[in-house]
Amino acid sequence: MKEQSKSNRWLTAVLLTPTGLWFAFMLVLPLIVILVFSFGERAPVGGYAGGFTLEHYANLGARLKAFTNTLTYAPVGTLLSLLVAYPLAYYLAIKVNRRYKLILLVLVIVPFWTSLLIRTYAWIYILGGKGLPSILDWIGFEGVRLINTPGAVLMGIVYGYLPLMVFPIYVSLEKLNKSYLEASSDLGASPYKTFMQVTLPLSMPGVATGCMLVFILLMGEFLIPAFLGGGKVFFIGNALVDLFLQSRNWPFGSAISITLVVIMLITVSLYMRMTMRNSKTGVDESLM
């Protein structure tokens, strides 16, 4: 027995090696590089020069606005995406005729086949002076400006991240056993009460996953604020693009990246702790 478990362990180690190497090279190594950079000096012509200093961390306050912007827009954007995505996911998973389900699902995915860049770019025209505002103007609302406002950024966020929110919720609603809904109705609950007491709590894993996905990606977002906020709504992502691609201050950019990673780690571990505590909805499905 002992021999066998030893050789098993060997096999496991061999099989896990590629994954381990991948993990080391793709995740750990870059992180280490960034960490080392964050303590270095900016080379005179830009980039990285060795050394050890904490000045970049001490200087984080210079990007305080970017941090507070990101930490405001990310949760608000996540919440708005959720409010838009849930009814859509619900409709797709529960209400829609089977025959059209696939078509509608594909329609939700199709925009993903084009780069977010192009799609966001289209919104510059739609929200610009010759787009929606000109129609509003025609109706009688003069001088409305949509583009380059916080509202435009939030709209872009909801638009861009919708599928990421829709799909986890859709999946959790789709695999929800329809007999739970019938049972609830059978026991006297109106459709509204059934939704609040059964559908919503049972779809919480999807909601949590969707929110986490969108939130994490929003923390690194730079394209939407640049395009739809006219560069005036500045996220951490924009600060990083600037530092790495324009001013070439790699060490400061690295320090900001590390800070961002730490913020995300804290968020994710809070999320994990929360879902573990509420795991009553997660485990059951397979067992029931």
Binding site: N177, S179, Y180, A183, S184, L187, A189, T194, L202, M288
Partner: peptide, 29 residues
């Protein structure tokens, strides 16, 4: 509609609400 009918059903796979304990399941109606 079913929620207004004076009948109740025992489902084939029971359809007990997985996010509630026994007590809450029974008290649901």
């Amino acid at each position: 509609p079913s929620h207004k009918r004076p009948v109740n059903m025992v489902f084939q796979q029971y359809a007990l609400f997985p996010h509630m304990n026994v007590c809450d399941n029974i008290a649901y109606g």
